[in-house]
Design a protein around this nucleic acid. Structure first.
Lengths: 194, 194
DNA sequence: CTATCTATGTGGACACTGTCCACATTAGCT
DNA sequence: AGCTAATGTGGACAGTGTCCACATAGATAG
């Protein structure tokens, strides 16, 4: 039933973002009285935390999938760059295809949410780090510039994602959107390969 | 009184972010019955929109102030770069000194909020554009790379600001924070001067 | 096999929110 | 002076998170 509540919460978040994951509605969905939820969660935030973790997991899954589609063996410069691009693309695509879940993923400041690890330990951040490590290994990014570079890279993609989904840049045309996303990836590439 | 409600709303937002700007509380602060607000605002969102605009304005003011502190005449390459840095610094500093207001500034997707212009027409985005234009004028940024470059730049700074204030990177130590911010600005500089 | 304990769901309540309606007051214009 | 438009008031309703006391079922111990 805990799982049922979380599943209901995820659907609510998918449809309306973190604010839409309302405890009473989730209990209604699973067919139980509101208070029953308090046997499984201390409060609404604890439910939202689970929803958040689920959203992060789906994001990590998408990043993994998109990365896996890139051919070329590890260490190949072009392939490494494409894999980093795949990570950014998956991130921004997730934000647009599931804006509610994306917002929910970052709704809780608390969370140890560098991304709660899924069973395999993959988190969005760890996937990004791996891609950047490969970039160093491939000789594209110099080692002395590697440390901490994941944060600006993450921020750039995250900023574009939020600005274009929930921020002032939402309601751009599809083509404008694609252009800004491409420009964002090029911007990152520019900064790294130098 | 409309102004009073907005002022109360701004203080609420300052203290607790957009969710804290609750209509009834604002009317309480100005000493009037809740419904009185409906003579001035269609609903809560319309009040929040004003708060949002006020927050954007304060952000623009800070950016202007920080930029003005940079010496060196227009067109000087080093000065132009420092002015762009000042804009980013002001942005991230605002996010940290006024996290509630910063969040409120971006709370409403609706808004024509590329930043509602203040009396002088300055908005955060227009200030950024001006700084980038100067960078072109100074020969630091090549003209053919100028178009639309404001979006990745904005996104990078915005991403760092949100991740470190409301996101998973909050609760970093002061020194880690400063380092990430410096790294963010360097990252942008790297991408532009190439 | 019975008795007790623990986990889980129920009913009812409270404070709080945004919002609507009907009413009172007040200021300004004719 | 009297009408009109603007503004504030009182009361209400639905919806929310959360707390309390109660019921019930399932396991566990004697």
């Amino acid at each position: 039933m805990r799982a049922g509540l979380v599943a209901a919460g995820v659907e609510l978040a998918r449809a309306g973002g973190p604010d839409a994951v309302v405890l009473r509605e989730a209990t209604r969905a699973v067919g139980v009285v509101p208070n029953a939820a308090y046997r499984h969660f201390a409060d609404r935030d604890e439910l939202l935390a689970e929803v958040c973790a689920a959203a992060m997991l789906e994001l990590a899954d998408r990043m993994t999938a998109e990365t896996a589609r890139v051919r070329g063996k590890r260490g190949n410069p072009a392939a490494a760059q494409r894999r980093l691009g795949a990570i950014g693309t998956a991130y921004m695509r997730f934000a647009h295809e599931e804006p509610g879940l994306f917002a929910a993923a970052y709704a809780l400041p608390e969370q140890h949410a560098y991304g709660t690890a899924d069973e395999s330990g993959r988190t969005p951040l760890s996937l990004l780090r791996a891609a950047l490590d490969e970039l160093v290994e491939a000789g594209v990014l110099s080692p002395e510039r590697r440390e901490g570079i994941e944060y600006p890279v993450w921020a750039t993609v995250h900023g574009t994602a939020t600005l274009t989904t929930h921020g002032p840049l939402r309601s751009l045309s599809e083509s404008q959107l694609r252009q800004i996303e491409a420009q964002t990836l090029a911007f990152i590439g520019n900064s790294l390969t130098q």
